[in-house]
Amino acid sequence: MDFSMQNRCLNCYEFILPNIGWRAIFSVEKEQLICQTCEGKLERIEGEQCRICSRPFQNIDEKFRRGDLCHDCFRWEEDPEWHGYLERNYSLFLYNDFLKEIIAKFKFRGDYVLAKIFSEFLKKRLTEITPDIFVPIPLSKERLYERGFNQASAILLEAGYQPNHLLSRIHSEKQSKKSRSERIHLPQVFQFLPDIQLAGKKVVLVDDIYTTGSTLRHAAKLLKEAGAASVQSLTLAR
Protein backbone atom coordinates (compact mmCIF):
# COMPACT_ATOMS: atom_id res chain seq x y z
CA MET A 1 0.00 0.00 0.00
CA ASP A 2 1.25 3.43 -0.87
CA PHE A 3 0.78 5.45 2.27
CA SER A 4 1.56 8.79 0.74
CA MET A 5 -1.28 8.40 -1.74
CA GLN A 6 -3.95 6.77 0.34
CA ASN A 7 -4.22 8.65 3.55
CA ARG A 8 -6.07 11.74 2.42
CA CYS A 9 -9.82 12.09 2.14
CA LEU A 10 -10.96 12.18 -1.50
CA ASN A 11 -13.51 14.83 -0.66
CA CYS A 12 -11.95 17.20 1.87
CA TYR A 13 -8.22 16.33 1.61
CA GLU A 14 -7.97 15.90 5.38
CA PHE A 15 -5.62 13.19 6.54
CA ILE A 16 -7.41 9.96 7.33
CA LEU A 17 -6.34 8.49 10.62
CA PRO A 18 -6.20 4.73 10.26
CA ASN A 19 -8.02 2.62 12.82
CA ILE A 20 -5.29 0.92 14.74
CA GLY A 21 -6.55 -2.22 16.35
CA TRP A 22 -6.31 -6.00 16.22
CA ARG A 23 -8.59 -6.07 13.20
CA ALA A 24 -6.33 -3.72 11.27
CA ILE A 25 -3.33 -5.85 12.08
CA PHE A 26 -4.79 -9.27 11.36
CA SER A 27 -7.09 -8.66 8.45
CA VAL A 28 -6.83 -7.06 5.06
CA GLU A 29 -8.87 -3.98 5.54
CA LYS A 30 -10.36 -2.20 2.58
CA GLU A 31 -8.71 1.10 1.88
CA GLN A 32 -10.30 4.17 3.37
CA LEU A 33 -11.10 6.70 0.70
CA ILE A 34 -12.96 9.33 2.65
CA CYS A 35 -12.57 10.49 6.22
CA GLN A 36 -15.03 9.58 8.92
CA THR A 37 -16.41 13.10 9.11
CA CYS A 38 -17.34 13.02 5.42
CA GLU A 39 -18.64 9.48 5.54
CA GLY A 40 -20.77 10.45 8.52
CA LYS A 41 -22.48 13.11 6.43
CA LEU A 42 -23.76 10.52 3.95
CA GLU A 43 -27.22 9.46 5.07
CA ARG A 44 -28.21 5.91 4.20
CA ILE A 45 -31.76 5.20 3.18
CA GLU A 46 -33.19 3.09 5.95
CA GLY A 47 -36.49 2.17 7.51
CA GLU A 48 -39.84 1.85 5.84
CA GLN A 49 -39.78 2.91 2.20
CA CYS A 50 -41.74 2.83 -1.05
CA ARG A 51 -41.87 -0.67 -2.54
CA ILE A 52 -40.76 0.60 -5.93
CA CYS A 53 -38.58 3.67 -5.60
CA SER A 54 -37.16 3.30 -2.06
CA ARG A 55 -38.41 6.68 -1.01
CA PRO A 56 -38.26 6.62 2.79
CA PHE A 57 -41.66 7.13 4.39
CA GLN A 58 -40.50 8.61 7.65
CA ASN A 59 -39.95 12.09 6.26
CA ILE A 60 -43.08 12.41 4.19
CA ASP A 61 -46.64 13.28 4.96
CA GLU A 62 -49.16 10.45 5.20
CA LYS A 63 -51.17 11.92 2.36
CA PHE A 64 -48.32 11.27 -0.07
CA ARG A 65 -48.39 7.61 0.73
CA ARG A 66 -50.61 4.99 -0.90
CA GLY A 67 -50.19 1.71 0.95
CA ASP A 68 -46.69 0.49 0.31
CA LEU A 69 -46.19 2.93 -2.56
CA CYS A 70 -45.37 6.61 -2.55
CA HIS A 71 -47.76 8.96 -4.28
CA ASP A 72 -45.43 9.37 -7.30
CA CYS A 73 -45.01 5.66 -7.92
CA PHE A 74 -48.73 5.17 -7.41
CA ARG A 75 -49.40 7.65 -10.19
CA TRP A 76 -46.93 5.97 -12.51
CA GLU A 77 -48.27 2.50 -11.84
CA GLU A 78 -51.87 3.65 -12.23
CA ASP A 79 -51.08 4.71 -15.80
CA PRO A 80 -51.45 1.66 -18.07
CA GLU A 81 -48.81 3.12 -20.38
CA TRP A 82 -46.19 2.94 -17.62
CA HIS A 83 -47.38 0.14 -15.39
CA GLY A 84 -44.83 -2.47 -14.42
CA TYR A 85 -41.82 -1.37 -16.45
CA LEU A 86 -39.56 -0.40 -13.60
CA GLU A 87 -39.62 -3.27 -11.15
CA ARG A 88 -37.67 -1.65 -8.38
CA ASN A 89 -35.31 1.25 -7.76
CA TYR A 90 -32.56 1.14 -5.17
CA SER A 91 -30.90 4.29 -3.96
CA LEU A 92 -27.88 4.37 -1.70
CA PHE A 93 -28.15 7.70 0.07
CA LEU A 94 -30.50 10.56 0.76
CA TYR A 95 -29.87 13.51 -1.53
CA ASN A 96 -28.92 15.86 1.32
CA ASP A 97 -26.89 19.05 1.02
CA PHE A 98 -23.64 17.23 1.48
CA LEU A 99 -24.35 14.68 -1.25
CA LYS A 100 -25.64 17.44 -3.50
CA GLU A 101 -22.29 19.14 -3.17
CA ILE A 102 -20.36 15.93 -3.90
CA ILE A 103 -22.47 15.03 -6.92
CA ALA A 104 -22.20 18.56 -8.28
CA LYS A 105 -18.44 18.45 -7.92
CA PHE A 106 -18.33 15.01 -9.49
CA LYS A 107 -20.69 15.58 -12.37
CA PHE A 108 -20.61 19.29 -13.22
CA ARG A 109 -17.06 20.20 -12.18
CA GLY A 110 -15.97 16.85 -13.57
CA ASP A 111 -14.01 15.56 -10.58
CA TYR A 112 -14.14 11.96 -11.83
CA VAL A 113 -12.25 10.36 -8.98
CA LEU A 114 -15.09 11.09 -6.54
CA ALA A 115 -16.93 8.14 -8.12
CA LYS A 116 -14.71 5.92 -6.00
CA ILE A 117 -16.40 7.10 -2.82
CA PHE A 118 -19.45 5.07 -3.75
CA SER A 119 -17.76 1.93 -5.07
CA GLU A 120 -17.98 -0.20 -1.93
CA PHE A 121 -21.61 0.70 -1.33
CA LEU A 122 -22.47 0.03 -4.95
CA LYS A 123 -20.76 -3.35 -4.98
CA LYS A 124 -22.62 -4.41 -1.88
CA ARG A 125 -25.98 -3.51 -3.39
CA LEU A 126 -25.21 -5.04 -6.76
CA THR A 127 -24.28 -8.39 -5.22
CA GLU A 128 -27.75 -8.40 -3.71
CA ILE A 129 -29.48 -7.49 -6.95
CA THR A 130 -27.42 -9.94 -9.07
CA PRO A 131 -28.20 -8.47 -12.48
CA ASP A 132 -26.94 -9.88 -15.80
CA ILE A 133 -26.43 -6.59 -17.55
CA PHE A 134 -25.42 -3.15 -16.24
CA VAL A 135 -26.78 -0.27 -18.28
CA PRO A 136 -25.72 3.31 -17.46
CA ILE A 137 -28.17 6.06 -18.33
CA PRO A 138 -26.50 7.65 -21.35
CA LEU A 139 -25.67 11.27 -22.07
CA SER A 140 -26.19 12.76 -25.48
CA LYS A 141 -23.07 12.96 -27.63
CA GLU A 142 -22.87 16.70 -27.10
CA ARG A 143 -23.24 16.48 -23.32
CA LEU A 144 -20.71 13.66 -23.13
CA TYR A 145 -18.15 15.77 -24.94
CA GLU A 146 -18.90 18.74 -22.70
CA ARG A 147 -18.51 16.74 -19.47
CA GLY A 148 -15.73 14.48 -20.67
CA PHE A 149 -17.27 11.41 -19.06
CA ASN A 150 -20.61 9.83 -18.30
CA GLN A 151 -21.22 9.93 -14.55
CA ALA A 152 -23.26 6.70 -14.51
CA SER A 153 -20.59 4.77 -16.43
CA ALA A 154 -17.97 6.23 -14.11
CA ILE A 155 -19.76 4.92 -11.01
CA LEU A 156 -19.94 1.43 -12.56
CA LEU A 157 -16.39 1.38 -13.90
CA GLU A 158 -14.85 2.53 -10.63
CA ALA A 159 -16.76 -0.16 -8.75
CA GLY A 160 -15.33 -2.75 -11.14
CA TYR A 161 -18.33 -3.41 -13.41
CA GLN A 162 -18.34 -3.25 -17.17
CA PRO A 163 -21.09 -0.90 -18.37
CA ASN A 164 -23.19 -1.99 -21.36
CA HIS A 165 -24.03 0.98 -23.51
CA LEU A 166 -27.38 -0.28 -24.79
CA LEU A 167 -29.01 3.12 -24.97
CA SER A 168 -28.27 6.39 -26.64
CA ARG A 169 -29.83 9.71 -25.87
CA ILE A 170 -31.31 12.33 -28.14
CA HIS A 171 -29.82 15.73 -27.24
CA SER A 172 -32.21 17.92 -25.29
CA GLU A 173 -32.22 20.44 -22.50
CA LYS A 174 -30.77 19.44 -19.17
CA GLN A 175 -33.17 17.37 -17.02
CA SER A 176 -32.46 19.51 -13.99
CA LYS A 177 -33.96 22.51 -15.76
CA LYS A 178 -37.34 20.87 -16.35
CA SER A 179 -40.43 20.50 -14.16
CA ARG A 180 -41.95 17.15 -13.23
CA SER A 181 -44.75 17.29 -15.75
CA GLU A 182 -42.34 18.36 -18.48
CA ARG A 183 -40.17 15.39 -17.70
CA ILE A 184 -43.00 12.89 -17.67
CA HIS A 185 -44.71 14.04 -20.81
CA LEU A 186 -41.51 14.07 -22.75
CA PRO A 187 -41.40 11.92 -25.86
CA GLN A 188 -38.99 9.01 -25.58
CA VAL A 189 -35.51 10.48 -25.19
CA PHE A 190 -33.63 7.21 -25.54
CA GLN A 191 -32.88 4.93 -28.43
CA PHE A 192 -32.07 1.27 -28.16
CA LEU A 193 -28.84 0.16 -29.77
CA PRO A 194 -29.62 -3.45 -30.64
CA ASP A 195 -26.36 -5.34 -30.52
CA ILE A 196 -27.07 -7.69 -27.65
CA GLN A 197 -29.63 -10.41 -26.89
CA LEU A 198 -31.78 -9.04 -24.10
CA ALA A 199 -34.33 -11.84 -23.94
CA GLY A 200 -34.57 -13.29 -20.46
CA LYS A 201 -31.89 -10.98 -19.09
CA LYS A 202 -32.07 -9.22 -15.76
CA VAL A 203 -31.07 -5.61 -16.34
CA VAL A 204 -30.00 -2.96 -13.86
CA LEU A 205 -30.05 0.68 -14.91
CA VAL A 206 -27.54 2.96 -13.19
CA ASP A 207 -27.80 6.70 -12.69
CA ASP A 208 -26.61 9.29 -10.20
CA ILE A 209 -29.90 10.71 -8.93
CA TYR A 210 -33.50 9.51 -8.78
CA THR A 211 -35.72 12.59 -8.87
CA THR A 212 -39.05 11.95 -10.54
CA GLY A 213 -38.16 8.52 -11.88
CA SER A 214 -39.03 9.69 -15.36
CA THR A 215 -35.60 9.07 -16.90
CA LEU A 216 -35.36 5.59 -15.48
CA ARG A 217 -38.91 4.67 -16.49
CA HIS A 218 -38.37 5.83 -20.06
CA ALA A 219 -35.24 3.70 -20.27
CA ALA A 220 -36.91 0.74 -18.53
CA LYS A 221 -39.78 0.79 -20.95
CA LEU A 222 -37.46 0.62 -23.92
CA LEU A 223 -35.45 -2.23 -22.47
CA LYS A 224 -38.53 -4.23 -21.49
CA GLU A 225 -39.96 -3.80 -24.95
CA ALA A 226 -36.65 -5.05 -26.32
CA GLY A 227 -37.14 -8.24 -24.36
CA ALA A 228 -35.49 -7.78 -20.96
CA ALA A 229 -36.91 -10.12 -18.32
CA SER A 230 -36.81 -7.47 -15.64
CA VAL A 231 -35.49 -3.94 -15.22
CA GLN A 232 -34.36 -2.61 -11.90
CA SER A 233 -32.38 0.52 -11.19
CA LEU A 234 -29.72 1.73 -8.83
CA THR A 235 -28.90 5.36 -8.10
CA LEU A 236 -26.53 7.06 -5.70
CA ALA A 237 -29.05 9.51 -4.41
CA ARG A 238 -32.76 9.73 -3.82
Binding site: R8, R109, G110, V113, L144, Y145, G148, F149, A154, L157
Partner: peptide, 29 residues
Amino acid sequence: PHHFASYPCSRCGETCLYCRRCIMMGRIS
Protein backbone atom coordinates in the same frame (compact mmCIF):
# COMPACT_ATOMS: atom_id res chain seq x y z
CA PRO B 1 0.34 14.02 -6.84
CA HIS B 2 -2.54 14.10 -4.31
CA HIS B 3 -4.17 16.77 -6.38
CA PHE B 4 -4.05 14.89 -9.65
CA ALA B 5 -6.41 12.12 -10.77
CA SER B 6 -7.24 10.60 -14.12
CA TYR B 7 -10.33 9.52 -16.02
CA PRO B 8 -11.31 7.88 -19.30
CA CYS B 9 -11.81 11.04 -21.31
CA SER B 10 -14.39 11.19 -24.03
CA ARG B 11 -12.74 14.26 -25.55
CA CYS B 12 -9.40 12.63 -26.33
CA GLY B 13 -10.37 8.99 -25.95
CA GLU B 14 -7.50 8.30 -23.55
CA THR B 15 -6.90 8.05 -19.85
CA CYS B 16 -6.51 11.69 -19.14
CA LEU B 17 -4.78 13.22 -16.11
CA TYR B 18 -6.54 16.20 -14.55
CA CYS B 19 -5.80 18.72 -11.82
CA ARG B 20 -8.08 18.59 -8.81
CA ARG B 21 -6.67 21.66 -7.13
CA CYS B 22 -8.09 24.29 -9.45
CA ILE B 23 -11.08 22.26 -10.65
CA MET B 24 -13.47 24.89 -9.28
CA MET B 25 -12.39 27.12 -12.18
CA GLY B 26 -13.19 24.42 -14.76
CA ARG B 27 -11.33 21.16 -15.28
CA ILE B 28 -7.83 21.22 -16.75
CA SER B 29 -6.64 17.90 -18.12
